[in-house]
Design a protein around this nucleic acid. Structure first.
Lengths: 341, 341
DNA sequence: TTGAAAGCGCTAACAA
DNA sequence: TTGTTAGCGCTTTCAA
């Protein structure tokens, strides 16, 4: 007859050790022999034991929390509620954190002081950190100080990560545009150091090369304003552009605004494919055809991993990126009026 | 010499009572005489005592949490990360809940089963509930069962609430459009039972009446699709409309899409003013002129009130609603090309 | 290396 | 009405 919720006492009893020993192996602190570690771990899995975070917090005096880290030049944390991507990671995290009395701590760290802030967070971490948006070197730095971390963007090897196929997604976007008949496909990329941006850029480059098209690239910042300005500039430099691949929906929304303001029409004069499938895609006018990232699932998986004691070194998990067709890309071979509405 | 963090023991000692008595008065449960209550309360304020939520949670076996309630016909909680308004209330709540080891619990309750779900939540509540979106009767129902609640939308008298001037905001929006030279100003309203929607509708009606304009109203649902459809219908019925007041930005984004799709231009043919100033306003094309609601501050204030033991019966707090000028409304008296870009 | 025992700060029986 | 006393589930000295 199993209890509703096994406690560490149950684990200790089943393993035939003291509570203290059980605690030691569960927390991975030295002071327990290999054979006992074995037995305790067996008991843990057999019982499906999950530590009570409330009790831990009371005993240690420290808050149990998952630290969500995003490096950004915008200051404060208040604006994050208006950020389509961050809102989705929060929404993904919240339900899994709910049952265990853990908290979410949101850190917006500035690029210039990032190193120090990262160290600070790493030294105060309890359950671990989720990197919502970070550069590989910073991620590595954190990981060197604290093993409990999982990244939602690509990082270098030892750092565990949730992987979405950004390269493949970008290629697919360009392919789609190509199939629709477009041959002058420009791109607006994200920040030079952002791993997602780097991969999406790589995907674009690969596809254009393979298809024998010119590389028409502009740099953006993953913000709407940047997308707007980049589109404007692109249109001036290359007035013959007939399609645009934009590395995130927020920038794509800005790009649509710029294109429309320039007197051109989307998708009649230029087709656009975005990336993310955020609320921005749906609020844009016309609504954006885009590559969907399963952000909520990625975040939820990351949190579960952390609650389970942190993923193993180098752990990686794949997530699909899927084309969502809306109204911002048009089939050139179809009748003008028809489009793909 | 004051301790870093006073405990209930300190309070009890200072008040000259037992810990149990202190606990009783702090938790407002019967079993303490008036004079002792006095003394304990004095000690609490003198020490600046704040209960340790972690210890409370461990002792009671219940999670300390703020329940965020939104009644909606969409099921599940995952999509809330893509909801511009909810994301903002979450962002406002998160920082204040951070320091105290409290959690946020998000409840999306369905309208048909709302009564039961509300009862359920009320009976499990700990720190209290924030009504992000609710009808007055449901709010009252909750409040009858549990005094710890703050509404972010208008409610009937005893229920404490954060008040934004939705009526005044809607009036101001219509006035603004009127000043710009518009005389056929239609409106897309929100759900019939939603207090914010009701107030914004009232503001529109008041303003149009005062200004001697026709009431050109259509019903929406606070979702993009509803805004789209309502705009379409409005344009068919009243092709001479020159401006639109839309009760939320999400619907306004949909309305812009519908208007554009019908071959008209925003703001050249029809001006639009939205409400909220959410991310939807900024992603729309053109970006929306809108009435800004300080959602984050309202949410943060609500949470602080709850953490401080819950606001008094009938407590009310005012928040401003401000016009934010972007590009979706045009001055008819200005030159055609100029607009108000 | 292991276990016994003392808390962490609070609530809730139970006695008085 | 009041206080005494066990816990809540865990970590962490301190002895053994």
């Amino acid at each position: 007859m199993s209890m509703l919720k096994p406690t560490i006492e149950d684990v200790a009893q089943l393993a035939g050790v003291s509570r203290a020993t059980a605690s030691r192996v569960i927390n991975d602190v030295p002071g327990a022999s290999a054979p006992l570690r074995e037995r305790v771990r067996a008991a843990v899995t057999e019982l499906g034991y999950q530590p009570n975070e409330t009790a831990r917090a009371l005993a240690t005096g420290r808050q149990r929390a998952i630290d969500v880290i995003v490096v950004t030049s915008r200051s404060g944390v208040g604006w994050l509620g208006t950020h389509p991507y961050i809102s989705r990671v929060l929404a993904g995290l919240m339900p899994v954190v709910q049952g265990v009395n853990a908290q979410l701590r949101l850190h917006a760290v500035s690029p210039d002081t990032a190193a120090d802030e990262i160290d600070e967070i790493a030294s105060n971490t309890t359950l671990g950190a989720v990197f919502a948006d970070i550069t590989p070197d910073l991620a590595a730095r954190f990981y060197r100080r604290c093993r409990h971390a999982v990244s939602m963007v690509r990082t270098d090897s030892p750092v565990p990560g949730m992987q979405a196929d950004n390269i493949g997604g970008a290629e697919e976007a360009v392919n789609y545009l190509y199939q629709l008949g477009h041959r002058r496909i420009a791109a607006i990329h994200g920040p030079a150091l952002n791993p997602c941006a780097i991969d999406r850029r790589a995907g674009y480059l690969q596809a254009t090369q393979r298809l024998g098209m010119a590389d028409l690239s502009a740099d953006g910042d993953f913000l709407r304003e940047g997308g707007h300005d980049a589109a404007q500039q692109l249109l001036e430099q290359h007035p013959d552009i007939d399609a645009l691949f934009v590395a995130c929906d927020l920038m794509a929304a800005g790009a649509v605004q710029a294109i429309t303001a320039s007197g051109r029409r989307v998708p009649d004069d230029v087709s656009i494919v975005g990336f993310d499938d955020s609320i921005a895609a749906v609020c844009s006018n016309p609504p954006l055809t885009t590559m969907r990232l399963p952000v909520e699932e990625m975040a939820a998986t990351a949190a579960r991993l952390l609650l389970a004691g942190g993923p193993a070194r180098g752990h990686r998990q794949q997530f699909p990126v899927e084309l969502v067709v809306r109204e911002s890309a048009r089939d050139l071979s179809a009748g003008r009026a028809g489009g793909n509405r």
